[in-house]
Design a protein around this nucleic acid. Structure first.
Lengths: 349, 349
DNA sequence: TTGAAAGCGCTAACAT
DNA sequence: ATGTTAGCGCTTTCAA
């Protein structure tokens, strides 16, 4: 029995070849697969990785989940235990408890709550947690691994694109509720604006709060924001959306409000969803390196670490590039200052 | 010990109240949670449910997965072990093996291969498998539970909508590779066409094959099909897409080819993704009852069944309704028979 | 180099 | 009504 165990665990040096062959033969013959439950019970390990997303219905998270699942499986033979948090602290905590109970030691958390102190508890209990879309808070040394796109840079790139086309009145459209990634994007937006002396007219449009229905309301918020924008005679002519879904909602809302994209308002998204190519006009967006980030997350989560290794690493991925499509054009030439407006409730957020 | 076990398993009748209270107290005090691995090892059961989707990156499957995950958790306290198959037989089989090894007894398979005989093996090995988007093949009695929208009816509804607007030349756009759901849709399409004497001009447009990249190429295929359509002087004026993603791709392609939706060509989708409301023009589509179906699948998969119960049930869900938006209009009035065409390579599929 | 035995945390049969 | 025990399938000492 222990010899078989040794074979299974690669300690084939401790027996003579003949025995090894005999065991391997039997394993093949019987199609023997170690029972994960027994393994789990004995060792505490399991070949499962936890994945926490705000909502599976959000195509961006779907895209990331897809890459994570594929890679974890191919590279490490791990399956994925998935859960939606709807950005709810309670749900997130419950999920972590369940994971622990199921023996899952590796978990990837996509865009969780602003506060990640609760991760430390889990790490002390033996988990490796990889957090997406944020960096460690200043002054805190946690053992959480962070993998994130450079959100500042992504937003800066998007904003630059608008400036390059001559836009003077810029806006950044986001949802209420501040996360690190959102504030990094806002900073990138403002940095780009300031760099061109446009900070005075660069505004942040804060839409509604994501409710329990998760991220499929993101585009609804974009739509609402679009109406606010449309109602403002001195509206921004170029807007950077916090993500592609927001951008899509913005475009739909603008159109409903009678404004044209890009003739009246230009829009740039961030993410690079395949859906961005399908919109009308096709959405210009900053492409994030989804597959690379997914691989990095899986590696950080699962790869065996050297014993004393301080495991807090931070990986920041550059946005691959700006995908220029059709949603950006030069700003409209104003006949008079407020020619494009229609007498409106002053509805800026 | 066994008393505790009895408490945990609801057999609280076998002890006196006082003991029950004492045990419950201790459980609360110690925050005791039964170890799933031990439970699994002992009983063979686990509180995990398997979910197989063609691709997580497909928003429709994301939407379904979201509902399944939420309901399985809320109703049964089950977590979801998810995997993408990319519609590959090998990957599907591997996933099933892994599930079995992990002790998972309940699995939901979304839109799998045409042939589902391999499920029988798994069922014999103690699994409950629920299959989405198909009915049992005629003449076969398997123990697979089927939950599906009425695809025939969905396509019929979509087609009727086009006919109602006066379209005479109809097309159904789909991908290569026949699944039961796709063929049911085609039949619904043809039935509606025939019903109005339009069968002569009702054609099926078969796009490319879904490759290993999964369903994000669905819209690419739509785009390609759009070019074929545009090149045909006597093209169909109303097209039903096999799903919303295909419809979105079709619209993008048509636009690139210089055709307008709905003025030149009308499009109807099937699914009712939230994305359909965001397109330009907003996509008219047949809404499927995603949440209801998800619940039904989870119930069928997990709910304890009476012993001898013949377990093959078939649940067919009616499409809730047609969502009328902007992608359908009356057909263009032809100046002469082929006025709208541009001398084209005859490119029909 | 191999075998024997303990034990991971439970459940269920059995004994008390 | 409660306690005792075997055993689910492994890993890992320890002994041979």
């Amino acid at each position: 029995m222990s010899t078989v165990s040794n074979v299974l665990n690669g300690r084939s040096g401790r027996m003579r070849k003949e025995t090894l062959a005999r065991v391997e033969n039997a394993i093949a013959q019987l199609k023997f697969h170690p029972n994960p439950a027994a393994l789990r019970l004995k060792t505490g390990r399991t070949s499962l990785i936890g994945l926490l997303v705000p909502s599976l219905a959000n195509p961006m998270f779907g895209a990331i989940a897809r890459e994570i699942e594929t890679f974890a499986q191919e590279r490490y033979g791990h399956r994925v235990l998935i859960g939606s948090t709807y950005r709810d602290k309670e749900k997130e905590a419950t999920f972590f408890e369940d994971l622990l109970a199921h023996g899952v030691r590796h978990v990837i958390v996509i865009s969780s709550l602003a506060d990640e102190r609760h991760f430390d508890t889990m790490i002390e209990r033996g988990m490796t947690v990889v957090s997406y879309d944020r960096l460690a808070a200043k002054g805190r040394t946690s053992k959480v691994v962070h993998v994130t796109p450079d959100n500042f840079e992504a937003a800066r790139l998007a904003t630059e694109h608008l400036i390059e086309y001559g836009h003077k009145r810029l806006a950044f459209a986001t949802v209420a509720g501040m996360t690190l990634s959102r504030s990094a994007k806002i900073q990138g937006f403002q940095a780009a604006a300031s760099h061109s002396g446009l900070q005075k007219t660069a505004i942040v449009l804060n839409g509604g709060l994501l409710d329990e229905y998760g991220d499929s309301v993101m585009s609804e918020i974009g739509r609402t924001l679009a109406f606010q924008l449309a109602a403002d005679p001195s509206r921004s002519t170029g807007v950077v959306a916090v993500n592609d879904l927001m951008a899509l909602g913005l475009m739909a809302g603008l159109r409903e409000a009678g404004l044209r994209v890009p003739q009246d308002v230009s829009i740039v998204g961030i993410d690079g969803l395949f859906l961005a190519a399908l919109s009308n006009p096709a959405l210009s967006t900053v492409q994030l390196p989804v597959a690379d980030m997914a691989r990095a997350m899986v590696d950080c989560a699962i790869a065996p670490k050297a014993e004393g290794e301080v495991h807090a690493c931070e990986q920041v991925f550059m946005p691959t590039l700006l995908v220029r499509r059709e949603s950006v054009a030069p700003p409209p030439v104003p006949a008079t200052e407020s020619a494009t407006g229609r007498g409106a409730r002053n509805a800026r957020a």
